[in-house]
Computed example of a mutant assay.
Amino acid sequence: MRTSTLGVGILGAGPVTQAIHLPTLARIRDAFHVAKIMDVDPDIARSVAGRVGAAWTTSMDDLLADEAVQVVVICSPHQFHAEQVIAACRAGKRAVLCEKPFAMSQAEAEEIAAVSQETGVPIIVGAMHTFDPGWLAAKEHWGDLPRTAHTIRYSIVLPPNPRFEDFATEVITRPARTRQDRHDPEVAAAMVRGGIMGLAIHDLPLVRAFCPDFTDLEVLTCHVPDPSGYLVNLRIGDRNVQVFGISTDSWQPEWTFEAISDTTLLRIDFTPSYVQAGSATATITRGGESAVYGPYSANGYEGEWRYLADLADGKAARLDVTELIHDLTFALDVADKASAAVRATAESQATAESQPTAPQKEAIS
């Protein structure tokens, strides 16, 4: 048995495990090896584990009881995250990495925080951009921008995930894509909520870094672009914030974050989620002069895994779980208010379209 590196146990063997975490772990074999993979589908568990020479199981309890597993990674559907994080902590593992969101309510998040404190097991959430060297370099050089920024823009334009997943690996099974009626109020609301909690949540912690009054949040407008996504204009405290995400069939991807004050512009260009191609590039412009930081050879996925290794070995300070709770409640607030706004707009439009026009009224009379 290998003992020089940390044994990783993975709960859930879907595309995120196959196309993100396994390729990342393959690059940092000096720190980790994959010990066991769990999936409820035995064929997927067996096949994915076979790629990396790991054991497999269909039981969470079996994985958590395995002494070869020191670190647990949770890549299961969102609704299971809180239960599995808590179980991993109570199993006495050395560290836990949970894909976002790590809970689906503030109550769940607070329970996780309490269990982490009780057991001493550190937890990190897979918001990879917060570990990206480009973002970290920007933090070192942006000065007073978090205090003076008045506008924050966060934009994601991506083709369907399978295009990137297939570059990273040969994915075994994935959910079928279906086109939804974005004009239906309930469908539109679900699309916006799902988009914010599944995609926008990656960088909402970055938005929050520039919004000290993040609990003072108002949705000004919310729309669902064609064919799917979200466009949300917010007022957060005294900051103007736009959060935009769209999935298109075009190829050209874009993933950008901007913070703007009267004197400074920060722009960060990230690589798409499944692209293992180095870090983001940060550009800070002041007085007509720009400084560029990056790209660096490592990306945010490697950054979070390296930090996880240091946590497990007691070499790094633990993240403040209160900050993770704030990140989650902020995302939930945006998702709840944006989905309510788009539902109301869609209902209003449906009502207006159902009313007869003036000529129709005359014909009826």
Rank of each mutant, 00 (worst) to 15 (best):
R2L: 04
V8Y: 00
L11F: 07
L11V: 14
Q18H: 03
P23K: 13
L25M: 10
D39A: 13
D41R: 06
P42V: 11
V52I: 01
A55N: 01
T57I: 05
T58D: 07
S59C: 13
L63H: 07
L64W: 10
A65I: 08
E67Y: 03
A68I: 03
A68W: 03
V73R: 04
A87G: 12
R90E: 14
P101V: 08
F102G: 11
M104H: 00
A107T: 12
A109T: 05
T119E: 04
G120V: 12
P122I: 06
H129M: 11
G134K: 00
A138L: 06
W142G: 00
D144I: 01
P162E: 15
P162H: 05
R163G: 09
E165M: 14
E170M: 09
I172W: 01
I172T: 10
T173H: 05
P175K: 14
A176S: 07
R179W: 15
D181F: 06
R193T: 03
G194H: 09
L199C: 07
I201A: 06
A209D: 07
F210C: 01
D213W: 06
D213V: 06
D216T: 10
E218D: 07
P227I: 09
S228V: 15
S228G: 02
G229V: 05
G229D: 04
G229N: 02
L231W: 02
R235S: 08
G237Q: 14
V241I: 12
F244Y: 09
I246Q: 12
I246P: 02
D249L: 01
W255N: 04
F257D: 02
R267I: 11
T271I: 00
V275R: 06
S279E: 07
T281E: 13
A282M: 05
A291K: 10
V292A: 02
P295C: 14
S297R: 11
A298C: 05
N299E: 13
G303E: 01
L308I: 08
I325L: 09
L332N: 05
D333C: 02
S339Q: 15
Q349A: 07
Q355H: 07
P356H: 10
P356A: 08
T357G: 04
P359I: 12
A363R: 12
S365P: 00
